[in-house]
């Protein structure tokens, strides 16, 4: 218990973790390279101009190319097995990912239709369900508590002007 962990909070797992591999570098590198390429291609369409009067696309185009180069080099290291050891995408907490992201998306979609109170209650409920061990009764109680607290702080306290009900 309570191992003396002096190092800064680990990025990924400890090096002796059996889950770690250089696959993470392959994933991150490819992702970054694709994003860079997307930005570069998009930027190309906005007009590059020349170096004296740069167009709207020049700067993102150049940075996008840099990102592609970096991404490819990271991905290559990962593929060759010489990259950093990280946990990468092993054991993804799917339930948490779906519930947390879903809660946020729900909030953005629902607020203008359902109003503050119902939206906060629903968002909290969905987010509660991210914990794998929570029972539905506890989740409901938790969501109720958060709704009341948010109402007190944002509506009564800070006088936030938002539609309260549908």
């Amino acid at each position: 218990m309570s191992a003396p962990v002096p190092a800064p909070p680990p990025v990924g797992g400890p090096p002796d973790d059996p889950e770690t591999s250089t696959r993470g570098d392959l994933v991150a590198g490819s992702l970054l390279a694709v994003l860079g390429a997307a930005f570069a291609v998009g930027a190309h369409g906005y007009g590059l101009g020349d170096f004296r009067t740069m167009g709207a696309g020049m700067f993102p185009f150049l940075v996008g190319l840099v990102l592609v180069a970096l991404g490819v080099s990271i991905a290559l290291k990962g593929a060759r097995g010489t990259g950093e050891l990280t946990v990468g995408l092993t054991r993804i907490p799917w339930r948490g990912v779906v519930c947390i992201a879903g809660a946020v998306l729900l909030f953005g979609t629902a607020l203008e239709h359902l109003g503050f109170v119902l939206t906060v209650a629903l968002t909290a409920l969905v987010a509660c369900l991210a914990s794998p061990t929570i029972s539905i009764i506890r989740a409901a109680l938790c969501s109720l508590g958060i709704t009341v607290a948010c109402y007190a702080v944002f509506v009564l306290g800070l006088q936030l002007r938002l539609p309260l009900w549908p």
Partner: peptide, 17 residues
Amino acid sequence: WVMFPTIVVLASIGTYS
């Protein structure tokens, strides 16, 4: 299971506002 939903809700309200 209390902390996470609270953070999610606070973050959403805050960013929206």
